[in-house]
């Protein structure tokens, strides 16, 4: 912390805040923090990924208290998914060190691209503000 000036501490706190808001809503993991660390703070990718993982533990746990309170958390389904995920993580880390994962990464990227576009242009989801306008239009 000593190496950080007050201004850069403030800036990194803002980044941390924004990153945590997004991560705690289950939107984008640590995309914001990772980008900041690797591009602006000059952190190596391994260190940035590790920092991001550790960062998420207390921030995500804080958000989880709220999610539980608001009744959104599905404890049973989440727990079974997490437990099954554990051997998956170990196998994934092991595979990553063995496989030439560049091709796999690109395949997965294409899948995410499809999922992202599908979500972005999903039908049946109307902008609530537009819907409100439509209602007021009907009323007239």
């Amino acid at each position: 912390m000593d190496s950080l000036s007050a201004a850069s501490w403030l800036f990194s706190s803002i980044i941390a805040f924004v990153s945590a808001v997004i991560a705690s809503m289950g939107i984008g993991g640590g995309a914001v923090l990772l980008l900041f660390l690797t591009v602006f703070a000059g952190t190596s990718l391994e260190q940035a990924q590790g920092m991001n993982l550790l960062f998420f533990l207390p921030t995500g746990a804080t958000a989880l208290l709220f999610h539980r309170k608001s009744g959104l958390l599905q404890v049973k389904k989440g727990a079974s998914c997490g437990l099954w995920g554990l051997p998956g993580v170990f196998l994934g880390v092991w595979l990553a060190s063995r496989l030439e994962s560049a091709v796999l990464s690109k395949l997965f990227a294409v899948f995410l691209l499809y999922l992202g576009l599908k979500t972005l242009f999903a039908k049946g989801e109307k902008n609530p503000r537009k819907k409100a306008d439509a209602f007021s239009g009907d009323a007239q």
């Binding site: 990194s12 706190s13 805040f17 705690s24 960062f55 207390p58 921030t59 709220f66």
Partner: peptide
């Protein structure tokens, strides 16, 4: 990670409230 935690926990609270 420590320098990032105060902002992060505040963000966690806000995200938990906002969702």
């Amino acid at each position: 990670v420590l320098p990032y935690l105060p902002g992060g926990i505040a963000g966690g609270i806000f995200g938990g409230w906002l969702l």
